[in-house]
């Protein structure tokens, strides 16, 4: 299954009717795309739905993919567009709800709290169990456009130039957002008492 073939070659093979090429692409990028969606939507359920939509779109839109385009640029653009559309719809629903009576259950919690108290996946150690919510909170505290750039660069591994294509802003803007993101994260981590050393200690 492991292959060194480029994404673009795999995609071309899939266009030609080779489903195993798609499988290789899926194995390579499904996790990173999911992480991108979880970090940007901050909602695993929505991220799961969006993940499926994204890849179904890859399947259905494959014939229209052009060989010149980088696959990851295309892939993350699809994921991002779906995510943005979804957020817009959610915002729209939220706006409509303003006229509704107050939520009787009072279950709308501030986002940060939601993220911080989000049930963590099984952790490898107690230290990392304590560290994780703080890292999540730090990431969640970033403005959306900074978080998006940081996640795409740090976790998805997209070069700045590609992030510029995905987000539709100049590369210089991407880099300055990245600088702000790193500064913001550093400050937040300091406030929460997380230092690089503490993070290292928590490493398994």
């Amino acid at each position: 299954m492991q292959t060194d073939e480029s994404d673009e070659r795999l995609m071309a093979r899939f266009q030609g009717g080779d489903a195993s090429a798609f499988e290789a692409l899926l194995h390579r990028h499904r996790g990173p795309v999911y992480n991108f969606l979880v970090r940007t939507t901050r909602d695993r359920g929505r991220a799961e739905d969006l993940l499926q939509e994204t890849w179904l779109k890859v399947v259905t839109a494959a014939p229209r993919w052009e060989k010149r385009a980088r696959f990851t640029t295309w892939l993350y653009t699809i994921a991002r567009n779906l995510s943005v559309d979804e957020a817009r719809r959610a915002a729209l629903r939220g706006a409509e709800r303003l006229e509704a009576p107050a939520d009787p259950a009072g279950e709308r919690r501030p986002l940060l709290e939601t993220v911080a108290s989000d049930d963590p996946l099984p952790d490898r150690s107690a230290e990392s169990a304590m560290l994780r919510p703080r890292l999540q909170a730090a990431l969640a505290s970033l403005p959306e456009e900074q978080r998006e750039v940081f996640v795409l660069r740090e976790y998805a591994g997209l070069p700045f130039q590609e992030i510029a294509a995905v987000t539709g802003v100049p590369e210089n803007t991407v880099k300055s957002r990245m600088r702000y993101a790193l500064d913001g994260l550093r400050r937040r981590l300091e406030e929460m008492g997380v230092t690089a050393e503490a993070a290292e200690v928590a490493a398994p």
């Binding site: 952790d123 990392s128 890292l135 990431l139 940081f150 503490a198």
Partner: peptide, 23 residues
């Protein structure tokens, strides 16, 4: 240092269920 700290955030693992449909 900031990167090192943030790298400690373990990746989220997507549920396996969806993969099969996609394939």
């Amino acid at each position: 240092a900031t990167r090192a700290a943030m790298r400690r955030l373990e990746p989220e693992v997507p549920p396996a269920a969806g993969e099969r449909i996609l394939l």
